[in-house]
Design a protein around this nucleic acid. Sequence first.
DNA 1: AATGAATGAGAATTCATTCAT
DNA 2: AATGAATGAATTCTCATTCAT
Lengths: 213, 213, 213, 213
Amino acid sequence: MPKLGMKPIRRRQLIDATIAVIGNVGFSDATVSRIAKRAGVSPGIVHHYFEDKHALLEAAMRDLLEQLRTAVAGRLALAETPVQRAEAVIDGNFSAEQFSREAITAWLAFWAHAPHDPALMKLRRINLARAHSNLVSALKWVMPRASVDDAVDGLVALIDGLWLRAALSGGRPDREALRTIARDYLDRLIGDTPDPPSLIKGTTRTGGFAWER
Amino acid sequence: MPKLGMKPIRRRQLIDATIAVIGNVGFSDATVSRIAKRAGVSPGIVHHYFEDKHALLEAAMRDLLEQLRTAVAGRLALAETPVQRAEAVIDGNFSAEQFSREAITAWLAFWAHAPHDPALMKLRRINLARAHSNLVSALKWVMPRASVDDAVDGLVALIDGLWLRAALSGGRPDREALRTIARDYLDRLIGDTPDPPSLIKGTTRTGGFAWER
Amino acid sequence: MPKLGMKPIRRRQLIDATIAVIGNVGFSDATVSRIAKRAGVSPGIVHHYFEDKHALLEAAMRDLLEQLRTAVAGRLALAETPVQRAEAVIDGNFSAEQFSREAITAWLAFWAHAPHDPALMKLRRINLARAHSNLVSALKWVMPRASVDDAVDGLVALIDGLWLRAALSGGRPDREALRTIARDYLDRLIGDTPDPPSLIKGTTRTGGFAWER
Amino acid sequence: MPKLGMKPIRRRQLIDATIAVIGNVGFSDATVSRIAKRAGVSPGIVHHYFEDKHALLEAAMRDLLEQLRTAVAGRLALAETPVQRAEAVIDGNFSAEQFSREAITAWLAFWAHAPHDPALMKLRRINLARAHSNLVSALKWVMPRASVDDAVDGLVALIDGLWLRAALSGGRPDREALRTIARDYLDRLIGDTPDPPSLIKGTTRTGGFAWER
DNA sequence: AATGAATGAGAATTCATTCAT
DNA sequence: AATGAATGAATTCTCATTCAT
């Protein structure tokens, strides 16, 4: 007798288990059996809910990125100035939800595998494009146009590098310290340019800077 | 076909092949057979020269780090000022020798596996400590003592993040662009503090800064 | 093809196949593949039912000893006098169930391997202790106490030696002839001491011998 | 430059190493490499002195049996009466030369493998025939003809069984105790039949027994 | 004579996937 | 829907044997 509506439940269990297992034993030892056991189901059932192992891995990576997107989006919605928008991106990346050890380690495992997996690479591109877009749309107001691209590249790289460090440091990562480093970099990038009041959300921008759009 | 003293030759061949294969197909698909084929030897011989697969992998990672160390050390030897020393670290990290696609991808694969492999983790720690030491000993002369640690953490993370980006971007990585971003971060960290003339190698330091040692 | 509750069935099949294969080709050529083929299953499934090859071998040896134990125990239950108890041990060891060529040869293979395998050695000790205990508890009534231990050691050794001979003689072993030799040794050990009537099961012992307890 | 006369030296080294290795790690783990290492030579050289691994194993078994033959023969030469001849066989089997732990364990390993190796089986047959012949020629003078065969079979089996016990007991085997058990069995077999004086070596037999030849 | 490099077959074991129930 | 039995391919590693030096 088929239980109805199991699909989303099982998929979620399996995705969570996948991230946990990859985080705990690494990509190459994340076997279907181990994942199934962690999810509390039999190994056979996995292929009922996912085409194959690869589809499960991809769904897990997708899920990880979706969580990140949500964390950033939530903060972006509250930001009122360009600088706050950039800070929202940073804060989202170092929010507690993202920053479990398992998740960070899994994230690293996925990226390491991406060069050999077009589907993961595609996710990476989408993810990167979103981060870029968010940061460019914020920083372009507070720095010379010509500097924005490099600044964004640097900021994204720094965030990634800090995640890498978190994944590779023993013990639980110190989110605050890492975030502070990223925030500091942001500060240095925008120099002492003040957040132009005219850019505050909801107001009409009247004044202007040389590098404004 | 020489029959004596093959050990160093074969070990080098196998290490190179390991890095290449990991770079090309990833950590989990880097089988002993594939590595042997790439090295042009039979699979069986691998265990003649390495205790087991793990020993080979570790030797390969060690080799990768040794290459990096050499690249940095060579540049450090030529540096005359603290700032030049910091630049030497950056430049060594983005030198052409290090920056083959295969090597970068392998590097990422190793780090992703490190959390599950004490031997790799140990290498990571040694490597990190060296980078820190090099940068601290340079930056402490050109910025307030209290800022040095965070600055170094940030710089190391940025470099790692830029490598990550290189590993994950299609096509061949643009070393110059990446290096420029790192150099720019360095500039921002030390502000407009000029390299104190008194610190130039070989001269006697007479003047002083608040944060000098 | 039943799909549930296969465990006991498969384990038995595999144990039987193991004994047969060891009996036929010897310990060193008893590969998992051969055993699986003999059991009519795929090589892979073996590890579904046994932790590893060693666990399978140990289970097989255990099974062999358990069969022997049962054969002896059944006969002991029917014995009414000390001498009959000793004879029960002998008869159990030469009963038809035990004495297939394959089983005897496998038995020898196991003992030969035991010095290098603590698990087998432990089984040997348990097995030996049981045989000793059975024989001591019988012989102590019919011979001087001081002679019992050596007598038991001799009897056990003779039985083992006769098994060895059976394993090493071509053709099918002549159980009867071998048993007769062991029985004769027993007779000589107890001399013409009659089974003391008083010791017959269920009767009260009234008379006495110097060596009675 | 070929060293002359290495052949017997190397063969002996390799045979001794083979027995030692089999005694220490068992038949299935006695690899050519291990044996070569134990003998202090390179693995390749083994095939210079022995056709193949099997030839080496056979030579080792042959050597073991030859040692036993010598030990018995030496004692037989000194025996003057039938009983002494039987005792010589027993004593030879429990002489110190034979009774190293390694040798006994190797002996057991060889017999366990014999059923699957015609060459070993042949050695076994030769060995057995010699023991039988020696014992029959002794015992026929001191017991009824009809009993001799069974008596010999029993004595041989007991000796084998005591070796088995020695191989399987921890610690160093107690030669004396084991020999005593075998001697006692012999005593019981021949009963109180005295060694007929007329049979003493070098004398002429005049009297007679019912079972004399 | 001797080494140790090299091969290739075969060992145990793992694992994604399929399938009968 | 779910299980766990089953397969067969692939993986790491071992080993007897051969061979260039």
